[in-house]
Design a protein around this nucleic acid. Structure first.
Length: 491
DNA sequence: CAGCCGTTAAGCACTGTAGG
DNA sequence: CCTACAGTGCTTAACGGCTG
């Protein structure tokens, strides 16, 4: 709303309220009838949530005989439990089958041909849009199924473990798709085993060892490189010991995954420097200390990456060189938060570390969205990349960070004649890419749970009401939510 | 059933505002 | 002027309410 100050560090993007039609790659003009101006009644929703929640508990507590006593409103969650129990195939009651929609016709425009000396691999991160968007929904393939902590509390640990198993099953499909489409470099979603590193609900991956070994064997058979990028809450430099400990667990779980898959040293885990905590030097010292304290097998796979806000390549290179931790150079981040050292020098120094360690180097490439001006806007990834940087070493793995995921890779494959492409796998680019990212949208009206809790504490509500919302058992959960709502309404 | 939309989960950066 | 705090941003996909 207000004009951006000249420094322009962060832009509050009220313009985001503009809704954007979901990325439509189909040729048919999207039929988007204007939504009726229905007033949103948030508070009602919340109250209902509480009621439903109790129903779910009842429903799932008798999963075995769920079929004989269907609740008037069978929740999706309850259904999900049944589904996971019948992974293979279920001769369940005859469902009315919806006529499958015909495959949409895609018109794939020609690409501008460009030249490069690059002979390395291009890869993408986490999600394959073709497989993810398969219809019907039961056909979709993806590796980042997750759930809420509440679902684990209600349904037990096996619930989340089953989700993860399905993720790994789908990883096999993704690897095969990648092979069929000449993409041999893939970042596995850090959410493939949801909550595996959680302090209370964490679990070992051993239960899934056979399937992981199978996925690893497939990747190795085709010579695919798999890497991972643990979440931004992996903060090895945090002043809070609990956060560092959680970060260690996160890295340990990713290491365990690659070990069970039998992946070699090229399967690295990439993290950023993290927050600054008002003390960059001190934080870098803590980061260094934390890395030194990692167990050897975890440290063997750890890699740092320059980010666009806190630690650029120049900040990280000294640590990387001292501790022999490879550096993933991200071109996009370097543009937003440049080092005083030119990229060429950074890449040379980074590559020297990769070489010393005997690991194939890796870089990240992405581009800001067209028309992006402010820093926050330029942070968001464009749908695709239009250019490869010059002078790339041939053994370099290049992960393309783009909204169109594998399509961005195929686009570059075509532009630069890097690999043959399967035409049926191609999807057209969105002709009208917006500036809007997919980030979380917050409701301006409703205070956050944290804010509500603090308000409640301030107003001197009794302990049970102000107790930790994230951790209280189901019985207690109902009261605070009701209180929450009142607090929210009044505030 | 499909699709839309807000919420949630992790941790931190940053801005604007209120109050001392 | 400084501090504290609320709100929003970064990412991502499932969940759940709701509508058509």
């Amino acid at each position: 709303m207000s004009t951006q100050p000249s420094s322009g560090v962060v832009l509050r993007r009220s313009t985001r309220a503009l809704t954007v039609a979901t990325h439509s790659t189909e040729v048919q003009p999207p039929i988007v009838p204007p939504p009726p101006p229905t007033p949103k009644v948030v508070s009602v929703k919340r109250k209902r949530t509480v009621v439903e929640a109790t129903e779910i508990v009842e429903a799932t507590s008798q999963v075995s005989d769920a079929e004989q006593s269907p609740k008037k409103k069978r929740t999706k969650k309850a259904k999900a439990v049944v589904d996971t129990e019948e992974f293979q195939e279920s001769p369940s009651k005859p469902k009315r089958k919806r006529q499958p929609k015909p495959e949409p016709m895609y018109v794939i425009p020609d690409v501008e041909k460009k030249k490069t000396t690059f002979k390395g691999r291009l890869g993408y991160a986490c999600l394959n849009t073709v497989l993810r968007n398969k219809k019907p929904a039961s056909e979709t393939v993806f590796c980042s199924r997750t759930c809420r902590l509440d679902s684990i509390k209600k349904n037990g640990l096996d619930f989340v473990k089953d989700l993860a198993r399905k993720n790994v099953e789908d990883l096999l499909t993704v690897i095969q798709w990648n092979e069929d489409n000449n993409i041999r470099f893939f970042r596995v979603s850090s959410e493939i085993f949801p909550y595996a590193s959680h302090d209370k609900h964490g679990y070992s991956l051993n239960y899934c060892s056979e399937l992981l070994a199978k996925a690893g064997a497939l990747a190795r058979k085709y010579g695919h490189r798999l890497t991972t990028h643990p979440g931004q809450f992996t903060q090895l430099g945090s002043p809070k010991p609990a956060v560092v400990e959680a970060s260690r667990r996160e890295l340990a779980y990713h290491t365990e995954m690659f070990e069970l898959m039998g992946m070699g040293s090229d399967s690295v885990m990439i993290i950023h420097g993290g927050g600054v905590y008002d003390d960059k030097e001190g934080t870098l010292k803590r980061l260094k200390g934390s890395i030194k304290n990692l167990s050897p097998n975890v440290r063997a796979r750890l890699v740092l990456e320059n980010d666009e806000m806190c630690y650029n390549a120049e900040d990280l290179l000294p640590i990387c060189e001292e501790l022999d931790v490879p550096l993933v150079f991200d071109y996009h981040h370097d543009q937003l938060f440049p080092s005083s050292i030119p990229p060429k020098t950074i890449i040379e120094r980074a590559n020297a570390i990769w070489k010393r360690r005997g690991i194939k180097p890796k870089q990240h490439l992405s581009e800001p969205r067209p028309g992006a001006v402010s820093l926050m806007e330029r942070r968001a990834h464009a749908d695709r990349c239009e250019n490869l940087p010059p002078d790339l070493p041939d053994d370099m793995g290049k992960e393309i960070g783009a909204k169109d995921k594998e399509q961005a890779v195929l686009y570059l494959h075509r532009m630069y004649d890097l690999q043959p492409v399967v035409h049926a796998s191609l999807r057209p680019a969105n002709p009208n890419p917006s500036m809007r990212t997919n980030g979380r949208k917050a409701s301006p009206k409703k205070p956050s749970a944290k804010a509500i809790k603090k308000q409640a504490e301030k107003r001197g509500l009794d302990d049970s009401d102000a107790s930790d919302l994230t951790d209280c058992p189901s019985e207690d959960e109902e009261l605070p939510v009701e209180e929450e709502e009142d607090a929210g309404e009044e505030a």
